[in-house]
Write a protein that binds this DNA or RNA. Sequence first.
DNA 1: ATAGGGTTAG
Length: 821
Amino acid sequence: MRDAIAILASCSVTLPATHAPAPPSHHRRRRCRPSPRTNQSLNSTAPSLHSTVRWDYASTSRNRNRKRLEYYTDLTSNLARDGRFRDLFMIAESFVVSGGKPSQFVALLDVNIVSAGISRMIKDGRLGSLIEVLGGLRKLGFAVVELFDGLAVEALRQVCRRQLGKRDDVEEIVSLLETLQGLGFSTKEFVAPSEIIRLCVYRRTPSAAIRYAQIFPQVHTLLCTIMIEFGKKRDLVSALSVFEVSKQNQGCPNMYAYRTIIDVCGLCGDYLKSRSIYEELLDCKFIPNIYVFNSLMNVNASDFSYMLHIYKQMQKVGVTADLASYNILLKSCCLAARAHLALDIYRDVQHLESKGALKLDVFTYCTMIKVLADARMWRMALEIKEHMLLAGVIPNTVTWSSLISACANAGLAEQAIQLFEEMLQAGCEPNSQCCNALLHACVEAHQYDRAFRLFKSWKENEHPSFPIRFSFAPTTSTYNILMKACGTDYYHAKALMDEMKMEGLSPNNITWSILIDICGGSGNVHGALQILRSMHQAGTQPDVVTYTTAIKICVEHKNIKVAFSLLAEMKRYQIKPNLVTYNTLLRARSQYGSLQEVQQCLAIYQDMRKAGYKPNDFYLKLLIEEWCEGVIQQNKQNKGQIASDRASLGPQSLLLEKVAEHLQDSNAESLSIDIRGLTKIEARIMVLAVLRMIKEKYNPGDSVRDDLLIILEEEPSGCGSRHETGSTEAIASLLQYDLGLEVLSVGSVDGRNFNGGFDISFLYPNSKVLQRRDLPLKLESPSRRPVPLQRLKVTKGSLHHWLQKGGASTSRSDSSPSAEK
DNA sequence: ATAGGGTTAG
């Protein structure tokens, strides 16, 4: 550095011609090509301030000038050779400041020497300043890439790797790559793009990923790859910010980007977002292409009606469905368990194939096999296999697995094993999943020993079904299936779970659920509940199934209190009970339930309705039965019972509140039940509750003074506009058929007695009775349709009779419409 | 540049 300053100092005053050593003789000199672009940039940076200090070529003699050039050539060459580029750049600067052209300076240098200097820097380990030096050389007009030999490129790669190894600042490594790319290097050779993208995704830095993508000419393809990678990490927010950059391309929506982000929504489980992105595209008045439509349908495949809606929109805008569209339709049918609809679509697609419009592929057949397997239609599943073979489509492992599953679901172990052998003969290599299906088949057929024998030969590779050439490890599912094969042998199941952990597999929700089931099934309710607790500690969150299993165990052991506390607990953890959970709890009542139990059931009905489940009529019927029978039991209890029960009701049970309200009015002279605004099921419960109350108040010998009035929805509208249709029908059916009461309509056209010449079965159009009598015609004909009723009247006579009978249900068993299904 | 398989609770 001192040298350089000395040199600079001297050259800015007078040229040190006398000290100049003899110019070295250079052989095979490679002169650098200055690029015009950098000339400009250098000239522009040359400050006019220094214009007094000039390299005055014009005023010097030819000889002196030549000597000077030789001197500088030597000087710069020495600096370059030693890798002292900073000094070199300072000289260059002063050279330019003194009026020299950068191209002239560059011409002094031999490329080989500069190259050697770079190698020197690398050898000395001065990698840190390498990038800066390269920038300087570039600025001078060197074609930097040409200065690098194999070794130097390797060193540059090391610089990148080192920076990448730090992994702490993604932006920094991307800056480095940007620089290198700008210098003309192909950075792909230093670091694989996938590696950079992976790091950006891991660090959740979409900005760095976007910058990196912009290095390459195929930016948009790369941005989509990046979106998918974020999607795989379930980072929708980052993916969306990448999408914002790539959604517009040359002034129009980039369909590839749109379909990609829709796929990412699917990966992240946010299908609603995929819908809003689709809407956004529609707002631009652009017609989405088939890829966008297919992706959207695929992401929303689990919502059959929406999927169909999109399919229809696609047809409307004139986009022709392709095979993928049909396969997605089938997938959606599969998810919605619509096997027959799938069969219809399959026939349509086959027709299209016969016309040569498309060719069914392995996905089509496989999805069909799956939908049929799930629907327990194993014969048809096997038929599809035949179609497939006839069409020359080769079944793959997934196809065979689905076929084996079809048999497994039907409990056909023999058939499953036969298919497995067939698969091997066809030269298709099995995998873990298809062996799992095979084991499942044995378990479903209750051939537990066979399952364990198969598993043993799988592990030891000795059974003819598992030739040695196959090696694939058992999975968590394998162990789960085997645990199911333990029946009620808790210790065996526990041992399998331990073995599974030894194999490096982790138990999942299903594993724990099975263990709970087995433990409880062996009679150890306490143990089952403890497993539920230890599951939390093991870091697996119980899900609906786990809780439902535990609830089932409690219910089966008459531990109703704990069952309900588990329900409360799962709600606290924000785990939504599903239909199975509710139905399991509804089975919790004892046959002659206490009032409290009935109320719990009512609360569950409330809950179910709120959660959007249709309460099961079958259980409701059981509840009604219980209620009527339960009255006898309740008669012995003291009168304070109802009041205290009412006090214990939570504020959320509105129906119960209403019921209680009616019970309070029980001393009123004449009774009426207002069911306006209630749903069908609520209305039924309401009516039953009042009847129960009447029954409780009734003492043998009392007379019934008044009819019981039921106030119905006033609205005289036609079908469709009412909140819920069928309440009247349900109530009338309940009173008359379930309880054997006499029911009159009040305020109807003629007020005739239902039991008179008037056929009341029109009130419940869904019943079998109705179908037999061909009554739908009457309903559909407006002229013969009865005017909507405003009230129902239960005659005091029949009420009296019912009370005296002791409330036992009458001819309900086969005439009740609710008995169906 | 799409899409597919196994195990749990009623």
